[in-house]
């Protein structure tokens, strides 16, 4: 009897551990939505900040983050997809492939602040792009490359081998096969992974801090060589560096809500696409 009692206790312990995590997540999201909504209005989303962020809106930060996301995807998407196609369709087992895989694993583990240092050293200073959107996008692209490669490869591998063999048997060349029989079925899957990567890039602060972000810059960027404000860094500044941090809580919650909505929204889109693909192709 005592045995089954201990079992029940262990079961409930593990269940409560799991649900306490769920509860914390729910609380974080609920609190940010509940306290953020009163702060978010039309002016907040479309006006320039005033008094170093204590009043006005967060438009430049939103625009900055959107610019960074677009630029990052433009750089990382083709590169990541091409790498994934090579690894899944062309690469043979061997030294070269092993080194590439090792490099991808290494990249995936590099801390974001180290990417920041790297971006600062290479793009900002060595290539003389300065603290700019360009430097930031390139740095973030390097950071999310492993995510895009991993999920694109998964999408490619999901296409059954038989389809490739059928196409090759019809006399198509390898690239023709890939282009007409593999990519059409895996493209949306590849896109999903890239979207997840961009979601991560949007919320990242540390690399952006060293390569692009402006402390306070109430104007919109004109070229890729301009500095911009961005949402995560703006939240950090408002919450910890602002002299009246205690008095501008609504502004902070508002910024946090916009950032959270953006990031979770991106992830939601990815999840929807993924479930649509699963319904569409059942091999």
């Amino acid at each position: 009897m005592t045995n089954s009692k201990t079992e029940t206790i262990i079961f409930w312990f593990m269940r409560s551990v799991t649900y306490s995590i769920v509860l914390i997540i729910a609380y974080i999201i609920f609190r940010i939505i509940y306290l953020g909504i009163p702060a978010v209005n039309w002016e907040f989303l479309t006006a320039m900040p005033r008094k170093s962020g204590a009043e006005g809106g967060i438009l430049p930060a939103i625009v900055g983050t959107l610019c960074l996301m677009t630029g990052t995807i433009v750089v990382a998407l083709p590169l990541g997809m091409a790498a994934a196609i090579y690894l899944s369709e062309y690469a043979r087992q061997g030294k070269f492939t092993q080194v590439i895989r090792m490099a991808i694993i290494t990249l995936a583990g590099v801390p974001s602040i180290v990417f920041g240092l790297f971006g600062l050293g290479l793009f900002v200073i060595f290539l003389n792009f300065g603290s700019s959107i360009l430097s930031g996008c390139l740095t973030l692209a390097c950071m999310i490359l492993p995510i895009i490669i991993a999920s694109s490869e998964e999408a490619l591998r999901a296409v059954p081998l038989g389809i490739r063999q059928a196409s090759l048997a019809m006399g198509a060349t390898k690239w023709q096969t890939i282009r007409t029989n593999v990519l059409p079925y895996s493209f949306s899957g590849m896109l999903t992974g890239s979207i997840l990567g961009v979601g991560r890039a949007a919320g990242e602060t540390a690399p952006v801090l060293l390569t692009v972000a402006a402390f306070y810059l109430p104007k919109l960027p004109k070229s890729v060589f301009d500095q911009v404000m961005c949402l995560p860094y703006h939240l950090y500044i408002l919450a910890t560096q602002h002299p009246d941090a205690d008095k501008i809580r609504p502004m902070q919650y508002g910024t946090a809500l916009v950032l959270l909505t953006l990031v979770l929204g991106i992830n939601l889109i990815a999840i929807i696409i993924r479930s649509k693909i699963r319904k569409k192709y059942k091999w």
Partner: peptide, 21 residues
């Protein structure tokens, strides 16, 4: 449970820091 916990992985670190603060 699975997707719910995955949400936590998506929350930007600065938002977690803000919550912590």
């Amino acid at each position: 449970l699975k997707p719910f916990i995955e949400i936590l992985a998506c929350i930007p670190s600065v938002v977690i820091g803000f919550f912590g603060l």
